[in-house]
Structure formats: structure tokens, C-alpha cells
Design a protein around this nucleic acid. Sequence first.
DNA 1: CTTTGCAGAGTGAATACTCACTAACCTCTC
DNA 2: GAGAGGTTAGTGAGTATTCACTCTGCAAAG
Lengths: 197, 197
Amino acid sequence: MKTAISNRQAEIIATSGRILMEKGIKGLTTKCLADEMNFSESAIYRHFKNKDDIIILLLQDLASSTESRLNKIISQKKSAAENIQAIFKSQFSFFKKNPHYVIAILSESLMDGSEEIKNELFNIMQYILKILSHEIERGKKEGLFIKEIQTTELVHIIIGSFRLCMFKWKLSDFKIDIEKEGDKIINSILLLLKNKK
Amino acid sequence: MKTAISNRQAEIIATSGRILMEKGIKGLTTKCLADEMNFSESAIYRHFKNKDDIIILLLQDLASSTESRLNKIISQKKSAAENIQAIFKSQFSFFKKNPHYVIAILSESLMDGSEEIKNELFNIMQYILKILSHEIERGKKEGLFIKEIQTTELVHIIIGSFRLCMFKWKLSDFKIDIEKEGDKIINSILLLLKNKK
DNA sequence: CTTTGCAGAGTGAATACTCACTAACCTCTC
DNA sequence: GAGAGGTTAGTGAGTATTCACTCTGCAAAG
């Protein structure tokens, strides 16, 4: 399905990322993209069918990089708590290096957009949900996490906290130290999850 | 400061709410608003300086109704846990009746919009933050909530969970039973907050 | 001589907002 | 109680701008 990405396409999605950071979703227009690429608007359409396809490629990039990154972590088979911590740390450090993805993930305009884009966003969310659920179940079986609360709810609380971190970070124009703030939240959550003996 | 709202203005913000539900933020255009009001686009400007002012009034409505609603709850001086539960229940039942506010609250386009709109959204968030912090501090003093985690983090976790509820609800096109789902989350959170003796 | 990569000019649709104008109504005065 | 003067709420035709996207043509590469 996935055709190889040309150099030019890679450049375009990289530039799109930069624009996302500088001007937000609304700033990501074909005109702006062409300006930043130092070529004309019409040149874009030599490399992409339409604007949606640019965003889709960008999200596919995020999806595949997220999956390979997190799969590596959970394959190490440490404790559930350690894995969850490692997942969060990895997410925060990755987004710190690539904050433009946060703009895409939190964007309602993308969510309201084309069906394909929506699916890409869903896939990413579903994947995170899946591995978090798995780790929590594992933690419960190990007797480390409280069993009184359903996994679904725990995952909800974790993801909600994570998203709010991202949201606050974006609101601060990415000036907050997200790794520091994120750490605080992970540790608090892990403390809450701990089984009361 | 606040001048009295005319009937027409009230009608316009009510219609805006309906449009928000039917067509989302993107659908809330002056043309659409005029169509739904059965008058011309220009007539809007007899009642509002500009489109932003319509949204500001809508958010001010939300703010004042939220404050009076929640102030009543916390003034009853029940236990912190009961208050937090009542706050959530009140929020969920209010939003169930007025789901269009959820669209406004979760909207990034509004957040990226005018400074005044952003301030309105901030005020609402700040208010919720304030009363939740207060209740949690109270719960800690009463010895009901765990003291090992800072209030800031606990509030973050609670608000994050709440926002994710809203987000999922909106994603489902408001088909999920938000009061039921919300209840589950409140109870889980309150269980987590409980002091481990 | 065909494909690739681009430029330039343009298109149609949408958007928030303005402007000149008007019909209906209210109130005061003679 | 009839006109004068003013207000209110509306119309319809526009404006400037922005947006994604298209069409035609051109130059270089293979």
C-alpha cells in the first residue's frame, strides 16, 4: 500500500512540521508551504494529490515511529510500572524533539476533516490504548496495581492526564519543560496505581 | 460592564449553539447563522459588533452558569469527596443538556482565535481549577485523601480525566451516555484519592 | 521525445464584514 | 390626531481576502 516516500515528499512534510510549529494548523496553507519550500503552490501537486495527503503522510510517520519506539520498550519485559514509566518518558522526550506532532494530535480541525485523517489519528490512539491496557493488566496480575478499578478506567485516567500535559505544554507555546512536568505526573499516577497492601 | 442582553442577542447565541451541534465550529459562519435566524447576514451586525462577540457572549453565559451552579454545591459544606462527586455530576448533567458548550470548550480554533475569547476560556478553566484545588486540600486536611501527592498533580489528573470524557463523548457524536460514563470515572478517581490507612 | 519538476496565471468558492437604503414604529408637538 | 423627527431592525448588493486546487507551458534530464 505504502509507496516509497520521495526526497521531495519528505522535505514537504518536514516543512509542514515547521509551519505547524510557527503558525499552527491554520497557518498550514498551500501558499505558506510553497513559500517555505521556495517554489510555487502548484509544484506541491506534483508530489501530493492534495493537502490531506500531506497530513496523512505526516501522521503515518508519527504512527510508525511511535510503534517502533514503544514496541522496543515493552519487549524488554521489565515490570509493568517500569514499562509504563518508560513509555511516558519516551513519549515526552520524543514530543520534545518533535513538538509539531502535538499540534497535529490535539487538532480538532484535523479530527473534523477527512475520514482518512481521522483514521490515522484513531490508529495512533488505539495503539497507545492497547499497550497501556496490556501493561496495566500485567501489573494487576503481578499484584503491583490496585485491582479495585477496571483497566478501562485506569487507562482513561492515564491518557487523560497525558493529553492534558500536552495541552498545557502547547498552551505555554512549548515553553514549559515537558519532560520535567511529565515526570511529575507519571510518578503521581504510578503512586496512585500502587496496590494498597 | 456587562450590558443587558437583548432578546435578539439571546436568540442569536441560542441559534449559534444549535449550529455548533449540527455543523461544528467550522459550520458556525455568518451566512449559516443568518439562514437559521431567517434574516440577512448583515442583520447580525445590528446586534453584535462582530462574530467574536457572539462567541464571547456564549462563553460568558457558560461561565456565569457554571459558577453559580458550582458555588451552590461547595457552599453546602459536605465532605470533600461528596463535593467533588457533586461537582462532576453537575457538570456532566449540565453538559448533557447543553452539549454545544463542549464543542466550544474543546475547540482549538477558538483557543487560537482572539485574545478575548481565549481569556473567557481561561477564566472558566481557572475557576474549575480553583474550586477543585480547594476541595482536595480540604480532603487532605480531613485525612480522607492521600497526602503523598501534591494537589496540583491531583487536580491535573482529575481535569485530564474530565476533559477526556468530554472528548470521547464528542467523538461519539454525543451518543455515549455521558452521565453513566462520567460516574464510572468519578468513582474510580475518588477510590484512587482515598487515603491508604 | 517523453517524463519530471516547476512557474505563472487564474478559478471558484467561501468568509467576515460594510454600505446605502427602507419600512415600521414610537414619541413629542402643534 | 396628524405630521415631524428619530430609532430599530432589517435588506441586498457589494468588498477584500483567503483558500485549495487547476491549466498551460517550459526547460532540463534521460
